[in-house]
Every structure is written in structure tokens, then in C-alpha cells.
Design a protein around this nucleic acid. Structure first.
Lengths: 228, 228
DNA sequence: TGACTAAATATTGAATACAAAATTCATTAA
DNA sequence: TTAATGAATTTTGTATTCAATATTTAGTCA
């Protein structure tokens, strides 16, 4: 059977556990500062401790968990300070991606982004938040792909993964949502013009505005309830 | 004895092995694409396989080694493409650091950078390359520290760690060295003026010029010897 | 002599065992 | 009743063992 060319792909147990735990953290099944008990997780997953501990090392490198020697591992908590640190970095890197994309992007790729953009606007008009964010993600991914810099993509993926737990989508205000769509118009316009500096500037501003939204959301959800 | 406050610091074996292997890779004791034989390394380090394998997972996350399931781990090779990917990212991030530093830096910190800068120039005039690079590193670290963004510092540390193996220091041309010192004059000037945008621009150009040097160096060392 | 196959050997991935450290529980004293 | 202490139990870090996979070696055949 020579229909299979290239290496056989293997998925070692520790890598599967990484995926599984990562998903649990992102889904909120494992919460901030929650202790990860090795014995319990091994029983739950039906594996031995060795690949689980190896998975912990990988997740620790991703900053999703924190390992304290002789004490154990726990899920990291995402603070406002974390977000205020990470967003400007993402902004700078997305700006770089935008700039590089304008150098390398093909006409076909621009056409694809236009289609995604039309989807985005359609979802906005239909008030479909979930699909709006799917389109939003797709546009950013397409720009990043057009940057032709795998290290940049991977770095951004790592940083985004850290803050994915910040639940700000549901609380996007009408005003901010309207502004975001306008920003996307500018993004598309600069991209079509292959204006790298312009696109970088718009993307950075887009991220700064996103941080403002996130900041407001987290303050809303952590404000002491004074009527209790 | 209450002279010791705060938690007792522990250094687990796997973390020691990470450090050791990382140093060996940076020192060139473990070369590009070199296979890491678990048994041999365990005998060499006098440890069991478990912490060594855990250390491999950490180093893999740092991209210093690559783990192929059922085949083993090997040291990653640094290519020109890697450098061309990483340098613009470092440039963007150092630019961000410069911008943030101009927001937060204290007069004392600026004075310290000035002292470092004077050291740098002194080492340049004395043709002392090694000490020049120590001062160079110190200046960049001071700017990064003044940015007050630990995530940024850590991200830059990770990216710099990947390319540390590129040996371009020894081949710095007189012309490029002279330009670098001039760039440092500009860096100091913008920093003293707390001109964030200006500093970001100079730092990015500084990195772009550094990439050009590295690129030229690697082409020199990998060019086929046609007289052989 | 080169190609192929099977057996032997080595290496990697995961499970289990052992030792050290941390936590919990029970007892005692003030 | 509370605090301190010691014992019991649990958890974490590492070593060892087992099983699966990859590589090397040896033998056979054309």
C-alpha cells in the first residue's frame, strides 16, 4: 500500500494528556489556582504517572500551569496584570504580521480575506456573536499566514493560548462591537492597499481597544457585590 | 536563625538537567542535529532516565531540542531561515520594550544606562569585543527592565535563547561595529528624551542591521570551499 | 557481492516501586 | 478549647522494570 507516503504519525501518551489538560483548562473544568492531584488525574485518565508528569512539564512551559517543587502543580490564574502585559505584545506581533503580510500576500489570499470580511459583517448584522468571532479569528489567521513567518505564528499562538481563558466575548458591548467592525474595515482596506505600516498601526490599535474591553469586563466580574 | 525568610528554594533534578543540557547546547558541546542518547546521558550525568526525559520535554518546549516519538531527541539546527524569522520578531518586541521603557523609566535608571553606554564606548575604543558585548547586553537588559513587562522580558528571553548559538560576535566587521556604536548613541539619546516612538524605531533598525551581519556571517561559514 | 530476511540487540515509552517530603489525624498539655 | 507534638497517611520526585519499537547483526540465496 503505497498510498501512505511520509512518516507514520505517532501520538505519544504524554502529548495526548497535554491536549486533554489544555482543553480542560480552556473549558474551565480546571479553574484558576486549582491543584492538580496526580493520583486523581491518573485514575480519571486511566494512565500512569509518568506521562502525566511529562505533560505537566509541557503545560508548565506554556504557563498554563505552575509546578512548585515538592508541592505539586496548579492551574495558573489569569490576572488583569497578565492581560495588560500580554495584549501589547500581541499587538506588536500582530502589527509585525500585518507588515509582513503586505509584503508577501497574494491576490488570491486577499480575495479570501475579503470573503471572510463579508462573512464577518453579515454575522454582525445578524447579531450572531459566535459566528462573528469565528470569522474574526479566520481573518487574523489569514493575515498571520500571509506573513510567512512560522516562528511568529507559533509565538502568537503561545501568547494567545495564555489569555484564551479571559471570557470577554459574551460581554462585548454594542458600541465596542460597532467600533471593532469599523476597525476591520480599515484592516481590509490597508491590506488591499498592501500598506504595511498602515495595517500594523490599525492592528495595534485594534488590540489596544480589545484590551480596554477585556479590562472593563474583568472589572465587572470581579467587582465586590456591595448589595450582598 | 531568622535570617532566612521566605520559602525554601528547591531545585529538582529535572530542572538541573535542563540547565546542564541547555548550557551544553549553547556551548556547542551538543551540536546541531546531534542525537541525544538517553542511556549515555544518564550515565554521563549520573541520574536516572525519568528526570532526563522530563528535562527533554522542557527543552523541547524551548525549541532547543526536537523529540521524535519512538525515535528519540536531537538538538535542533539553527538555519538562516530561523534567524530571518526570529530577528524581526525580536526587533518588534525590543521596539515595544523601548516604547514602554520611555513611559516608565526613572532618572536613576537613565543614569545607569548612561554609565553602561560609556563603558560600551570605552570597550569599543579599546577593541575589547568581549566586554563590548557585555555592556551591549546590559544596556538592552536595562531597557527591557524599564519596560515593566515581565511577560515581554520572558518572551524575549525565550526567543534570544533560540538564536544564542549563532556565532556572529567574532566576525563583527569594523564598519558594522562602528555603525552599531552610532546606533547606541541614538538609543541613548532617544531614551534620555523619553521618545518612545523614536527609540522603538532605532531599536528595530538596530536589530535589522544585526540580522544583516548574522546573515553575512553564516553565508561565510557555510559557503562551499571551492579550492578543496 | 548485493539483496533480503530473521534474529539479536539497543533504545524509547510507559508502568511500577522506592524514598523523601508534605499533609492530615490523633493525642496530650496548658 | 486551643495549641503543640508525634504518628499515620498521602503526595511528589526519582529509580527501576517491563513492553513496544527501532536498529544492528548474521545468515541465506541468487
Amino acid at each position: 500500500m503505497n498510498t501512505m507516503s511520509g512518516p507514520i504519525h505517532r501520538n505519544p501518551l504524554h502529548a495526548q494528556i497535554v491536549e486533554h489538560l489544555r482543553n480542560m483548562i480552556h473549558a474551565g473544568d480546571l479553574g484558576p489556582d486549582e491543584k492538580l492531584n496526580e493520583k486523581a488525574l491518573c485514575e480519571q485518565f486511566g494512565v500512569s504517572r509518568t506521562p502525566l508528569r511529562e505533560a505537566f512539564k509541557v503545560l508548565s512551559a506554556e504557563r498554563l500551569i505552575r509546578i512548585t517543587p515538592h508541592y505539586g502543580a496548579s492551574v495558573t490564574a489569569l490576572t488583569v496584570a497578565d492581560l495588560e502585559e500580554v495584549f501589547p505584545i500581541i499587538g506588536a506581533l500582530e502589527g509585525l504580521a500585518g507588515e509582513l503580510a503586505c509584503t508577501f500576500i497574494t491576490d488570491d489570499e486577499i480575495a479570501a480575506v475579503e470573503r471572510m470580511h463579508r462573512d464577518l459583517v453579515r454575522h454582525y448584522e445578524a447579531r450572531d456573536r459566535a459566528q462573528y468571532f469565528v470569522s474574526n479569528e479566520a481573518i487574523h489567521a489569514a493575515i498571520l499566514n500571509a506573513a510567512r513567518n512560522p516562528t511568529l505564528a507559533e509565538t502568537l499562538r503561545g501568547l494567545s493560548g495564555r489569555i484564551r481563558r479571559a471570557r470577554y466575548h459574551a460581554n462585548l458591548s454594542e458600541e465596542r462591537w460597532h467600533s471593532a467592525v469599523a476597525e476591520h474595515e480599515q484592516i481590509l482596506s490597508k491590506l488591499k492597499a498592501r500598506d504595511g505600516k498602515g495595517l500594523a498601526h490599525v492592528l495595534q490599535a485594534h488590540l489596544a481597544n480589545k484590551l480596554a474591553t477585556v479590562r472593563a469586563t474583568i472589572q465587572d466580574t470581579t467587582r465586590p457585590d456591595q448589595s450582598a
